[in-house]
């Protein structure tokens, strides 16, 4: 039998909430799929749409962007800017025909280890039936 498809996911997590939330999941020993490799950035507001496109072109099967809940951003308003910027790239990815499941955004606070775990589990579950992402992947 062929091996089950294991999606590769890059997760951009803001340092103060989402990365801290994933640390909490760790401290609480909550198990979740290992498909996600997190990249901790300072704030969701620093995540450029280019990061997301770059991840897809480098073969990511899914990309997650996660920051603090509105009003909780360590830098006061970074996540509000992120929300706008990411909404646009999200719509564009959908418009060109990338499966909408492949790109996700979430608010995960430092206390939401469980939520982080759930998001990863769901994400992996939704990506598995889609198979590898080849549309934007670079095969040079």
């Amino acid at each position: 039998m062929a091996e089950e498809f294991e999606p590769k996911i890059v997760a951009f997590l803001c340092k103060w909430c989402s990365s801290a939330g994933s640390d909490l999941a760790g401290v609480s020993r909550m198990e979740y799929p290992y498909n996600v490799v997190p990249i901790t950035v300072m704030c969701s507001g620093s995540i450029s749409p280019l990061y997301i496109l770059s991840a897809f072109s480098r073969g990511a099967d899914g990309v997650l962007v996660s920051g603090c809940h509105p009003g909780d951003c360590h830098y006061i308003k970074g996540n509000f800017y992120a929300r706008r910027r990411i909404a646009l790239i999200n719509k564009l990815l959908d418009f060109i025909g990338l499966e909408p499941q492949r790109f996700q955004m979430s608010w995960v606070s430092a206390a939401e280890g469980t939520k982080y775990t759930e998001i990863i589990k769901d994400f992996v579950k939704e990506l598995k039936p889609l198979g590898p992402q080849t549309k934007l992947g670079r095969d040079l």
Binding site: F80, Y81, R83, R84, A87, L88, M105, I119
Partner: peptide, 14 residues
């Protein structure tokens, strides 16, 4: 992209 409103939609965010 250099402004926002508090009520900007976020139904796409989990």
């Amino acid at each position: 992209i250099s402004c926002f409103k508090d009520e900007d939609p976020e139904d796409f965010i989990r």
